[in-house]
Each structure stands twice: as C-alpha cells, then as structure tokens.
Nucleic acid binder design. Structure first.
Length: 335
DNA sequence: ACCGAGAAGCTATGAGCGAC
DNA sequence: GTCGCTCATAGCTTCTCGGT
C-alpha cells in the first residue's frame, strides 16, 4: 500500500462553524447501495452541515473538523469508533441520469476519518477529492429549503416546522416522531415558556401547522398525535405529512430511484400499469416506452392520478395522451 | 373477565396582566 | 387598544384498582 502520494494530497481546511442552520439533504442524485445506519447518518449530517458549497475547490478533498463535545451531544463516544470505521469504508454510487446509457461511478466517501488525533478534540473527516464536485453541487442537487416560502411565514415556528418537514420528506419519510423535549429544543422555546403541553401546542405547533397548510403555492398538511398514552404523560408526538402534492413528489422520487437501480424491472411494471389502467394502443405504448422523457411525464401524471390530484379528469387515457402530446392530429382534414 | 367509581391527566376557553 | 403570555377552571377522557 503506497500511501505516500495520498498523504501529499491537498485538503481544503473547513473551519468549524457552530450552529449552521441550513442543512442540505441528499435529493435524487445519490443512490447509495450501502445504507447508512442512524448513527452513521447522524455523523454524516454533521459533516454535510459544515460544508459551504460555495467555497469548495473541486480538485481537493475537504477536511471537516467537528468538536468532539458536539458529537457527544447526540452520539455516544463508544459508538464512534465502530461507526466511523464502517463509514470510512462507505462508497457512494452516482448515477448520471442525463445519459441514455447506464453510467455510474462508485466513489469512496472519505479518505480518512480520525478521532481526537494528537488529542485535538476534534473528529476529522477528510473527504475523497473525487467527492468534491458533488458536494459543490449541494446547492442545486440537494433539497434546499425554499427561501421564498420561508420568507412568507409570519411565525418563526412555521419556518422551523417547514424545515423539519422538508428534512423528512427529503429522506422519503412521511411519518416522524419527536419527543416534546426535542421539539422544544428544535423550536427554540425557552425552558420556562409554555411549560404545559397545551400552551406549547396552542402557540407553537398550531400556528405553524396552520400556516403550512395555508401556504399559497404548495400547502403542506401536517397532522400530529400523541404517542402511546393519549391522555397521560404525553412524551412524544408523531407527525404525519398528508399533503397530496408532497406525497406525489415522493413517489416520483422513489420511481426515479428505482429506475436507476433496476431499469428493466421498472419498465416491465410500467407496461403492466399501462395495459391495466389505460386504453393505449400498442404502437403508442411503444412510443412512450422508448422515450425517457415521455416515460417520465407519464409516470408523473400517473402518480398524480393515484394521489387524486386530478379529480375532475374522467378519461385518464385521453388526458395523459394529451399531456404527452400524443393525440393524433387529423392531418388530411385540417381546418 | 368485567364493572364502576374515583383519581389523574388532558383540552378548550378565557380572564388577567404586563409590555408596547 | 393589541399582543404575547401565564394561569385557572370547567368539562372531558382515560387509567387504576377494588369488588364481583
């Protein structure tokens, strides 16, 4: 193992910035075959959180240092050794969706992860230089919180709620649980304020919930309920995102992920759906199935149908063909 | 297993109060 | 006055636990 060259590699030293608020979440670009455990994900988020995608030199790796005291807040030190060891072996697989042929690249995430080296007090991630271009695209290819939507919110709690919701949607989750304590921390409510749950709900959760649901562009409907004991000793709340639009977005995302992993299976399934639910001629079906753009459009609209987003449409086939611009135009008898 | 009464906890409402 | 908050209370629901 000739590692001498590696050691001479350049790393951009990322200064540690405490309390960074924007987190970018993997959106659609990355499909990792190796799944992250919860703790791994948490550590990875510490890493992602620190990255300022504007200042990345895409030729160099990035060195991100996180104070161990910070890590300790959410991860037990005993876990770190095992977890970082497995993280150091993680590979991310990038698929380029814009190409017609299958093209992918496995990229090891980190060239090294060190814990408290030379008693530094830091957990240091050194990312693989090849990862840098992807990290630099955090701003465009990752879930970014919609700044305009956030600006429109009147309650600061709405903003936080919105971020939480986005965060979970970004990870394909529509149900999530928080303890009351965690929520109070997330919403930055002072300890003495709203000591009873009722007031907390009345002044924090409810205004946020209502505001999200009444957002002009894409209302997000969130419901929550007490977990476990409904009446007594409520310690956790379970949130459910029920917005149709968001859900259809999620399904589209899942579809795209599935395509990158196993295209032929997805296409077979797609053909089955067309046959069973739509009255589309063979030739037209072949046209759709042979064109990635049409497939994409078709799936989008189909999922929207499934989620009841087009309640007024009576003839789904006609509607979908019109959207795909596949309606036969009368060539001979033009007006 | 079931019942019922009292205890315990929760919800909704709104009065009260200080800050602006 | 309005806003933001706390607190009290009435009226619930749910739990506990002893009795059958």
């Amino acid at each position: 193992m000739a590692h001498t060259e590696l050691e001479e590699e350049h790393y951009y030293e990322h200064p540690y910035t405490p309390n960074r608020k924007d987190n970018y979440l993997p959106n659609r670009m990355v499909i990792s075959n190796t799944q992250f455990s919860r703790v791994e994900q948490r550590l990875f988020e510490y890493f992602i959180n620190q990255i300022d995608h504007n200042s990345i030199n895409i030729k160099h790796g990035i060195s991100v240092k996180i104070p161990i005291t910070k890590i300790r807040e959410t991860v037990k030190v005993e876990q770190v050794l095992a977890v970082t060891r497995s993280m150091a072996q993680k590979v991310m697989t990038f698929f380029d969706m814009s190409k017609s042929h299958i093209e992918f690249k496995h990229v090891p995430l980190f060239s090294s992860i060190s814990f408290n080296e030379d008693n530094s007090g830091y957990l240091e991630f050194r990312s693989n230089a090849q990862l840098s271009p992807y990290l630099a695209s955090l701003g465009t290819q990752y879930t970014r919180y919609d700044f305009k939507t956030i600006l429109a919110f009147r309650s600061i709690y709405s903003t936080i709620m919105y971020k939480i919701v986005k965060l979970h949607l970004g990870q394909n989750r529509t149900k999530f649980i928080y303890s009351i304590d965690e929520l109070r921390r997330l919403f930055q409510v002072e300890e003495k304020k709203y000591t009873n749950l009722n007031d907390f709900k009345k002044y924090v959760l409810e205004p946020a919930r209502k505001e999200l649901a009444s957002t002009e562009k894409f209302p997000i409907v969130v419901e929550y309920e007490h977990l476990g004991n409904k009446q007594r000793n409520v310690t956790h709340l379970e949130f459910t995102i029920v917005t149709q639009w968001e859900l259809s977005q999620l399904e589209q995302q899942e579809y795209r992920d599935a395509v990158t992993l196993n295209p032929s299976l997805v296409y077979a399934k797609l053909e089955e759906i067309i046959d069973q639910q739509y009255l589309i001629k063979k030739e037209t079906k072949q046209i759709i199935l042979s064109n990635a753009t049409l497939i994409d459009k078709f799936v989008t609209i189909h999922i929207e149908f499934e989620n009841g987003l087009h309640p007024k449409v009576k003839n789904k086939t006609a509607y979908i063909l019109a959207c795909l611009d596949l309606v036969k135009k009368k060539t001979t008898r033009s007006k």
